Measured scan of single mutants.
Amino acid sequence: MEVRTIKVFTTVDNINLHTQVVDMSMTYGQQFGPTYLDGADVTKIKPHNSHEGKTFYVLPNDDTLRVEAFEYYHTTDPSFLGRYMSALNHTKKWKYPQVNGLTSIKWADNNCYLATALLTLQQIELKFNPPALQDAYYRARAGEAANFCALILAYCNKTVGELGDVRETMSYLFQHANLDSCKRVLNVVCKTCGQQQTTLKGVEAVMYMGTLSYEQFKKGVQIPCTCGKQATKYLVQQESPFVMMSAPPAQYELKHGTFTCASEYTGNYQCGHYKHITSKETLYCIDGALLTKSSEYKGPITDVFYKENSYTTTIK
């Protein structure tokens, strides 16, 4: 009895394709271990004539594949690729409408935090270190965002349907971005203890939790000093293409032309909904596939993004 075979390709990165001759009487799992086709788990399936010449994702289970996976995804987590594939199996079914010149995501599976993050990423200057993220990001900007969303979920250790947080998501993504040249110098002034300067680099240099107003941050924000008295913390120097200011959701007025974009969060910790506000020729609110415009805006804002380049204080 002759062994019926077909020729397929296996890959971990969709760049390096490895030619395989597979036995049609055995499952993919018996031949390769966990195997995925377009995100779908085909591990328990036997090869079919229609699979001839198709590319299958496999887990990096030998040295060659491990090197290829690390170079593309910059992670050695053995569960990463499987999590990416199972997320992709959902995100490829989502709709990605162009809204006001940006790629958004039609609401499904509690994905409003991903839509808000995706919209924000198209408006701030950011370059990702893992080629996987950078490639998928370019495709997302062009309207094909399924891979990018699935990668975000995998890097953030999230599953489809789980509630997510924009600030946490951005923080994970910033860790995989090139923020080497970003720098922030802060000064804390206390009447009792004097003053202390701190220099922050990388992710810490672009994120701040405690106030939404970048102007206020430049002037000074009140913080408790270690001595128990009130101290003032203010920005001395900022070198970065953008800054992200966050605070627990509270009524906040966004003035046209003073910011790049913002995240609105309605609801409580267990259950809520994100919308995205962007400042173009007027203010726009993007909620999944829905767009509304207004000249002014007041609502429960939790993150505001500002364009920056270089700032030095005039406070002496």
Rank of each mutant, 00 (worst) to 15 (best):
V185T: 09
A115P: 04
D77I: 03
P249A: 02
N147R: 09
A177P: 01
K92Y: 06
Q216V: 07
D303P: 00
D180I: 05
V185E: 04
D41S: 12
D41V: 09
Q230S: 12
T35A: 08
S240H: 01
P34A: 10
S181P: 06
L186W: 12
H48P: 12
K54T: 14
L179T: 03
E52L: 11
Y113N: 01
L37T: 10
G267I: 07
Q175A: 11
T211A: 07
A142H: 15
K183Y: 14
L118V: 08
Y269C: 15
T55R: 11
Y274E: 00
E239F: 08
T55M: 08
V221E: 06
H276M: 08
Q30F: 07
K106F: 06
A142R: 13
V8W: 04
L119A: 07
T198D: 08
A108E: 08
A142P: 04
P47E: 04
C225F: 00
L212M: 05
Q238H: 03
N100Q: 14
L151H: 01
D23M: 12
K316C: 15
H273Q: 00
Y73H: 04
Q195D: 13
Q31W: 13
Q123K: 06
L291Y: 14
M85G: 05
E162G: 06
N49W: 08
P249S: 01
E2T: 11
Q123F: 02
V3C: 12
A205M: 00
A289L: 07
R184E: 04
G53F: 11
L102G: 05
T169S: 04
A154S: 07
I301P: 00
S295G: 12
L212K: 02
P130L: 04
A145E: 04
Y297S: 02
Q123C: 09
S279Q: 06
V21S: 14
S213G: 04
D23F: 11
V185W: 03
T43L: 06
N110V: 03
K280S: 13
E71W: 06
K191M: 10
M209I: 15
P97F: 09
G267M: 07
E125Q: 10
G228Q: 04
A69L: 12
Y265S: 00
A231S: 06
T260I: 15
F70R: 09
Q222V: 10
E52I: 12
T11Q: 06
Y72H: 13
N187E: 12
I105K: 04
G143K: 01
T11K: 06
G29P: 04
V58S: 07
S104V: 05
D77T: 05
Y284C: 15
T266E: 10
T313F: 15
C190H: 01
K93E: 10
C149D: 04
L173C: 07
P224M: 15
L212T: 07
P131C: 04
R139L: 11
F70L: 15
S86T: 12
V304C: 04
N111A: 05
V304D: 01
K44N: 14
K293R: 13
H18G: 05
L119Q: 02
Q30L: 13
E52T: 11
Q30C: 15
N147Q: 14
K44F: 14
A115H: 02
Y265G: 05
R167Y: 00
H51G: 05
E264H: 05
M209F: 15
I45Q: 15
V99E: 07
P248R: 13
L254G: 00
L88T: 04
K158M: 04
T226E: 13
Y252S: 07
T292Y: 10
Q230C: 05
Q175P: 10
T64S: 12
Q195F: 12
F242K: 00
A136C: 06
R4M: 13
K255Y: 07
Y113I: 01
T266M: 12
D38S: 09
Y306W: 01
C261H: 00
S279H: 05
L200G: 02
S50I: 13
S295M: 12
S213E: 06
N100D: 11
D62Y: 06
G39V: 08
Q230W: 14
M26Y: 12
T313C: 15
Y214M: 13
T10S: 09
T5E: 11
R83D: 05
T192S: 14
S279E: 01
S79F: 08
L283P: 00
E162K: 05
K219I: 11
V21R: 13
I124T: 02
V185C: 04
A87Y: 05
S294V: 15
Y284S: 10
L102E: 06
E239C: 11
S86C: 15
S104A: 10
E71C: 08
L254A: 01
K201Y: 15
Y269E: 15
V160S: 03
L153M: 09
R83N: 10
H90Y: 13
K191S: 13
N147L: 05
G39P: 04
E296Y: 14
G267H: 11
T198I: 15
G210Y: 01
I45W: 12
S213F: 00
F242Q: 01
I124E: 03
A142K: 15
Y113Q: 02
V189H: 12
I286T: 05
A289W: 05
I15L: 15
E2M: 11
M26S: 12
Y113C: 02
I223H: 14
H256M: 12
Q197N: 10
Q123H: 06
H74E: 07
K92Q: 11
D77M: 06
G82E: 14
F217N: 02
E68D: 06
T5P: 11
V42E: 06
Q238D: 02
Q98Y: 10
K183L: 11
S240I: 01
K106H: 12
A231L: 02
V243N: 00
E296P: 12
T192H: 11
G202H: 05
G161N: 09
G202Q: 01
M85Y: 11
L102Q: 04
S171F: 15
T302P: 00
I277P: 00
L81P: 08
M245Q: 00
S263L: 06
K95V: 15
T169V: 12
G164A: 03
E264P: 02
E264D: 06
Q31H: 10
G202Y: 01
A140Q: 03
I286Q: 00
T76F: 13
A289D: 14
A154D: 02
H176I: 06
N49C: 14
P249I: 03
K191P: 15
V22G: 08
C261N: 03
V8P: 06
T258F: 07
G228S: 02
S279C: 09
Y155D: 04
P130V: 08
D109L: 04
C156G: 06
K191F: 08
I315E: 15
I6S: 06
Y208S: 14
K280A: 14
Y214L: 13
L200A: 10
R139A: 14
K7A: 13
C112A: 03
G257Q: 06
L291Q: 13
I286V: 10
K316S: 15
